[in-house]
Design a protein around this nucleic acid. Sequence first.
DNA 1: TGATTACTGGACCGTTCGGTCCGGAACTGT
DNA 2: ACAGTTCCGGACCGAACGGTCCAGTAATCA
Lengths: 206, 206
Amino acid sequence: MDRPVLNNKTMTNGRPLQYDPDKALHAAMQLFWSKGYEATSMQDLLTAMGLSKSSLYQGFGGKKELFVRCLERYRTHIYESFRQLLETSDSGLTFIETILLNSAAEARKPDHLRRGCLLMNTATEFAQKDRLVAEHVTIGFKGLRKALKVAVQRGQQDGSITSNQDAGILANYLACTLGGIKTVVKGGGDEKSVKEIVGVILKTLA
Amino acid sequence: MDRPVLNNKTMTNGRPLQYDPDKALHAAMQLFWSKGYEATSMQDLLTAMGLSKSSLYQGFGGKKELFVRCLERYRTHIYESFRQLLETSDSGLTFIETILLNSAAEARKPDHLRRGCLLMNTATEFAQKDRLVAEHVTIGFKGLRKALKVAVQRGQQDGSITSNQDAGILANYLACTLGGIKTVVKGGGDEKSVKEIVGVILKTLA
DNA sequence: TGATTACTGGACCGTTCGGTCCGGAACTGT
DNA sequence: ACAGTTCCGGACCGAACGGTCCAGTAATCA
């Protein structure tokens, strides 16, 4: 992704981009992640991304389009981190344990840093109100479930997870509990009780 | 609650309220529940509550104050419905099963009617940004966990739920999964897969 | 150097935001 | 009928919203 432009016509020469589109997109994503869509103003975005209003509109098309780009970025981001984590995990179960405990660890942070998961935040904030956003959320969830399913299957092969239940169903169950943990943490849950919850979840996989 | 006024000085005579404060509050709650805090405008509220701007400010004090009142109302509402449901449930487990399946049933509705739970929506939307709101969310969560704990204890007594685990921990676990189901449904989950998830959860209680 | 390209800052747009205020009308108890 | 009280419609407020537009200019290639 060299240029942030929406149309993909080839560009030959002229003044090159004065900002790093990837960095800018990253900053926007962080902001949306922290504050949500509605509560993030264009001014906030301009400041965080470090570019002028015209550049933003020229480069990203508008608030909604920018947000969708952020969703995409977030999605590919977590897929990648999941892939890496799974690669370096001893077993399917420890992979899942790590993910759950990471989520639980957010409870140690002060309130304003409990950002949860951009995908799930978006689902609760306004996936119902916009078809395009809803589609991206659905895609994101699907990918999440698929990644978890792969992990469950590996766990069932290496014996760390029970084979008594269908891997797909267990993956959906895990996606659900993951969302639950995010919600509990955002609701002010302390790490100790969240860890107890994780304990119950892990026990159900054994 | 005769008068919605914020100060509680005694009122003797004068023109009585031309609207039903309870009905108005209910309408506001429905709106916040559906659209969230930020996305609900004062104009929306005025229309839905059927009163004039001055009446709203005079009677409820402002958007934030009104929202907090709605949170309180929602809280007492669900406590009451939980109490009633538990009373008429055969066992602790069937009570929990009913609650989970009710949440799952929302997946049958079209997107714009998947409202989730006002408390959890608020937790994800902006509990971090406002201390007062955060407190109310925390209180609400606490009450929810307590209600679930009572149900679990009853289930442990009547034998429908395992006694191998602490009732409080199981209650927290259930609150978590409940939030997860709400999230999954909002994210576009279909009823079939949500029911499968509920199946897994119930199995973990046995 | 000159022609071409397109990034950039800021002025500007109409709309909507939450919130205040006041004058007139409606209802009460005496 | 009257005085006292409170409700309520609507005008009005400044600020912020997302978005458009254009002139100025920086960077490229030939």
